[in-house]
Design a protein around this nucleic acid. Structure first.
Lengths: 250, 250
DNA sequence: TCAATAGTGTCTTTGAGACACTATCAA
DNA sequence: TTGATAGTGTCTCAAAGACACTATTGA
């Protein structure tokens, strides 16, 4: 039997079937706090609970394409704004009982977005919004989404160490202080301003100067800061390591 | 409608269906070279091509459980030997056309194993074996498995930097020189013996002394080496970074 | 005038890497 | 005896972090 004949006689339904969804852990920074895009479910299961935006993968689309589509649908965003959002695969979650309806494997994705407008609820949901991650209703997230969010946050913290993706939380032009704000928000503790400044400028390709300055100094005074845009590095070398965390090592 | 009623009337077949497989990039070190477990396919599609071990996820098993089961089936291994194999999720691959039969999303896993016996072919395959990764028939791997292998190798190289998983390629007791051999094999270039030795011993929890020594010196002479076992660290701090690779940064 | 901030200078400590050297063992 | 290897000592350089300081701005 050759491959042609084999495929002609192949019956997909003879194999165990499972549904595939994509879910998105979309992060942004608002007013100095890390926010997560969540949807309040309008239908069972977990009706009324908050859940990650996501849905079934369409027959003709790639996993990451599906995740970007879901993100576009939930945020009402498109075009250039959406294209500036960083999106990467996070991990897949497939415990047999994670969804009461049927066996569903979710391919979770992680997104970093600059401050975006409030989402518009679509037909399936009665509410959608950016919620601060520090005040998450952890026990009330649908399915295993609390676990997925935890994994996403840890991945985000780690990614800031060795990639320049912190810039994806900001607009096309930013100051070093704003970049430092991203690190402090995601990592959850303050950094030394002077050392951070020098470190960022010393990593090749992390940021490049636009030549411009901010129009005004800080809200409470201070000189006008120089403006930078993201450089062409894909990895930071040397990396910007988080302050030692002995506890997490063992 | 409450959740009970909803689930009772829920029809899984109304949703787009997809098959889920797990594939395993299983690595081991034989005679100083990195080897990969491959199966020569006995059936279409890609009949006669080499492919990663893997298969459909069973209805009641978790993704990682499925990967471990597939690994056990292909290697004929069980019990303690299998339990010593490190297994982690790598990534999921779901391009719509990656399998000519139907939409199949593969959740790839990565395994690090100490030198294992040659695998026994099962009913679906006419051949199975550990192949050196340097001499892979890249263009002849089935499906998108060449890409998955590349991703797995890069993940393996990276994991050796900041985790103690190099020890998973070795037996329960090993010398520093053997551990160095793992790094040299996976990273693909020689390391300075003296500096490596000191570095490994300086990282807390990486290895701990057994108190014993090897029975004999090296094959071409030299003193007997001290024996070590894996320590309790889950992360290396500070990390063992690969020598700088400027090319890969941009 | 005052307080906050941007940006730079400098010193200390840690760690990576180059190199040298000794002790030990197989052939 | 010879040559390879295990393990240690030492030096240099890069980088992280602590601290200090100046210049610039808003209030």
């Amino acid at each position: 039997m050759n491959e042609q004949d084999f495929l002609a006689g192949y019956d997909p339904s003879a194999y165990p079937s499972t549904a595939i969804t994509v879910d998105v852990v979309a992060l942004t920074i608002r007013e100095g706090a890390l926010h997560l895009l969540l949807i309040r479910r309008g239908q069972p299961p977990y009706q009324g609970h908050w859940a990650l935006p996501g849905g079934f993968v369409q027959p003709d689309e790639d996993l990451t394409t599906g995740a970007r589509r879901e993100l576009a649908e939930e945020t009402g965003l498109g075009g250039d704004r959406l294209r500036r959002v960083h999106l990467e695969q996070l991990a897949s979650y497939g415990a047999p009982d994670r969804d009461p309806r049927m066996r569903i494997v979710s391919v979770a994705h992680l997104a970093f977005a600059p401050d975006l407008p409030d989402p518009v609820a679509d037909s399936d949901a009665d509410e959608a919004g950016w919620l601060p991650v520090t005040a998450l209703p952890s026990r009330q997230l649908a399915f295993d989404h609390a676990r997925i969010v935890d994994d996403g946050l840890e991945r985000a913290r780690s990614k800031l160490e060795y990639t320049p993706l912190a810039t994806r939380f900001l607009g096309p032009e930013f100051t070093i202080a704003e970049l430092r704000g991203v690190y402090e928000t995601v990592w959850g503790h303050p950094l030394h301003a002077g050392n951070f400044h020098r470190k960022v400028l010393s990593v090749p390709g992390f940021v490049e100067s636009t030549g411009g300055n901010t129009e005004r100094g800080g809200a409470r005074g201070g000189p006008r800061a120089r403006l930078y845009r993201a450089g062409d590095a894909r990895l930071l070398h040397p990396a910007l390591l988080r302050p030692a965390r002995e506890e997490t090592v063992r």
